[in-house]
Design a protein around this nucleic acid. Sequence first.
RNA 1: GGUUCUGUGGCCGAGUGGCUAGGCACCGGUCUGCAAAACCGAUUACAGCGGUUCGAAUCCGCUCGGAACCUCCA
Length: 489
Amino acid sequence: MNQQLFVYNTLSRKKELFEPIKSPFVGMYVCGPTVYGDPHLGHARPGITFDLIFRYLTHLGYKVRYVRNITDVGHLENDADEGEDKIAKKARLEHLEPMEVAQYYLDRYHFAMDKLNVRRPSIEPRASGHIIEQMEIVQKIIDAGYGYESNGSIYFDMVKYNQKYHYGKLSGRVLDDLLATTRELDGQDEKRNPADFALWKKASPEHIMRWNSPWSIGFPGWHLECTAMSTKYLGETFDIHGGGMDLLFPHHESEICQSNIANGQEPAKYWIHNNMITINGQKMGKSLGNFITLNEFFDGSHASLTQPYSPMTIRFFILQAHYRSTVDFSNEALQAAEKGLKKLLAAQNLLPKLKPAAQSSEDIKGLEQKLYEALNDDFNSPIAIAHLFDAVRIINSVKDGKASLTAEDLELLKKLFNDFVNEILGLQSEEVASGSDEMLNGVMQMLIELRQQAKVNKDWATADKIRNELGALNIVLKDTKDGAEWSVE
RNA sequence: GGUUCUGUGGCCGAGUGGCUAGGCACCGGUCUGCAAAACCGAUUACAGCGGUUCGAAUCCGCUCGGAACCUCCA
């Protein structure tokens, strides 16, 4: 392992030295999607952010158990009023099982994440599969005297909690302020206090997902599933709890309350939150109706897109900003990312073709050091990418004979690109083929020879015709000192 | 209203006290039959005002602007 890793902990609002509770094991829990709509660009942010963290910790040698839940309970009842998409509507009209809807969108989510080269978590538990565990936590909280029943629903007694514990430590809220500013909500009159949150809700007649319990036929409160599943698979206290910044309050704050009472300790040592993706300066979200789905990016079908963007372009676009910054969507920014990524990967493809020299004119070991320093500083991917572009310049210069690298440095550079570009940043070439297909390769060699002959005869019309017509087929020809090169775009 | 952030060049986006971030775009050059790519060079910054300091994009204060959260949205 290289140097020390520092991570920004939302709990302390500082970068802290990362020391796992039980090294080399690392437990990481991240709040996953609610599967009732198509995955959009906003889902890509935490997916890629925690994929980077997962990949980097693994690269450093940690044994990471990464748990990311699927929320498929409790959120399916009231989507009919606004922003309902066609498929959900269709599902309702055709009287599909709620699980059918959840499965449909879960498959779509997996498909999009796979395209983005986001690794699947170690465990992907579903809330609906952990109702018993959630009810057990409710019972523990009731037994401890912090949960009370009201009309079949169970609520968490926040005022009592705050007497002994510090409510709001994660988000910086003060209970008294919350009591003064909480808005009118359904079921508010059942609570002793507006800040109390539901542990178990009695199901209204139109609520389609419901379970029997000692208290009522109903469903678990929305903060409970993460406490139940993280405790089950990672223990009462684990290393990293992640999620979007929008979940900080009240979701994560409430998880802390539940863990403190049910388990007698805080759930996580490090809280990591990714920032939002914005469009025209505003958060991209389902409830705002300004989101673009990932499939729309992939095929360019959304009205505000001037072209399709490949999954790798989107991944690179997100990694070019630090995960704690907002990143603003625009066609211009996406196009810049597309070109930058192409340049980066083209340089990597060049690496095997470089000829070693007796001496190096560049400091590759120093580059390695800088790459680790960047990622050790709270997973600073934009800095790492900037250093990789320094390497791109070196590679291209070596190719042009303007710089030199020893065989040893070339090997190290190959390893660095493989480790950092492919394994850690998770970026891969999307080229369909370049020389791997034997038949295509043979045809291309023939065309290149014909064109070379035309060039010798100064028959520029024929030479350009071959190049242009190949270009129309997305095969790009480049003339270099050592003859023509080709690649499929 | 409260809490937490934030304001960097044409665009995106790093950077927390002195040292060229980087990418894209634009301009000039090298190479080239032309093109593309690549390389070299130039240009464009730190919202405003005040303070601390030998020195501030970076720390402090104020003003103005923006965002997230305070409703089951990543």
